[in-house]
Amino acid sequence: MLTIYGVYRSRATRPLWLLAEIALPFNHVPVIQAYRLPNPRAEDAPFNTASPEYLAVNPLGQVPCMEDEGLILTESLAITQHIARVHGGALGPQDAAEEALISQWTLLAATSIEACALEIQRILANGGGVQPEGQAAIAIASEKLRRPFARLERHFGGNDWLVGDRFTVADINVAECVRYSQGATALIAEFPALGAWLGRCQSRPAFLSMMAAREAEPA
């Protein structure tokens, strides 16, 4: 049976959302990030990314990680694409062209969106959005996001979803990267078709159940 290592308050949200969508039975091993613990190597520390047992699975010491029939993957977006391809049915690619398109949108999210969106989330979470320095940093990150967001806006001007006129793993991968920037409400408002698509993604029962589980975990 497929195993996912990682807590919900991590990039494990991506495969966990997908698994909720397809109702695939799996083992879930909560592995907390070592940086969130005062002493991750203490004898009574919870299972974490610095635990020797976990490093034996993923020497990178990061989450999520997946094991499926002997295959181990350590990158969240590769994990979702594998699950969708092998187990995902309509959420996965139906031919080579769709597989290429899913990879295209996933790589756009990873290379052009995630880092700047995470910077916005980090600043706002730490209360920096009310400080001039934080506002300036958010403005810089927002400017870098406008080009990929404009690309998505054009696509969603004539399409409800990213690939094949249906919800797929590409929507999960991109939506989870865009989500980090949602606190910059003025930025999102500049791209109404993108915002409407994000709303469609985040109104799905599987997303809502995943986020409920995330909120139930200690911050």
Rank of each mutant, 00 (worst) to 15 (best):
S203W: 02
A12L: 01
P59A: 07
D160V: 10
L73K: 00
V130M: 14
L124K: 15
P52V: 12
F167D: 01
R11S: 07
G128T: 14
R200K: 13
G89M: 08
P15E: 08
T185A: 12
E43R: 12
L101P: 03
Q131Y: 15
R11I: 02
Y8S: 07
L101S: 11
R204N: 04
G70S: 13
T3C: 03
A137L: 11
Y5R: 05
E153V: 04
G88C: 06
Q135W: 09
G157M: 05
L198E: 01
L152I: 05
G199P: 02
A12M: 04
V178Y: 00
E215G: 10
G129M: 15
A42S: 12
A45P: 05
L2K: 01
D171T: 03
G89N: 11
A100M: 14
G134A: 13
Y180I: 00
A137P: 02
D44R: 06
A50D: 12
E99R: 13
N159P: 07
D171M: 04
A206F: 01
S181R: 00
I120D: 04
W161M: 01
Q135A: 10
Y5V: 03
E114T: 06
L187A: 02
E119R: 15
T13M: 12
F156G: 01
I83T: 06
E215M: 13
V174T: 01
S142T: 06
N48E: 07
R204A: 03
L24K: 08
Q182Y: 08
P30Y: 10
I123V: 14
R154T: 14
T168N: 03
E143I: 02
P132Y: 12
P64E: 03
A213N: 15
A117H: 05
S103A: 15
M211Q: 13
P46A: 07
A20R: 06
S112E: 15
S103M: 12
Q135G: 11
V169S: 01
A141I: 11
V29R: 07
A78L: 11
L73M: 02
V169P: 00
M210I: 06
V31M: 10
H155R: 09
E67K: 09
A110C: 10
D160E: 10
I120K: 07
S10Y: 02
P46D: 03
A175R: 00
I32C: 03
I140R: 15
F149T: 07
T74E: 02
L24Q: 13
Y54V: 03
R166Y: 01
N39R: 13
P30D: 12
L107K: 13
A189Y: 03
D171S: 05
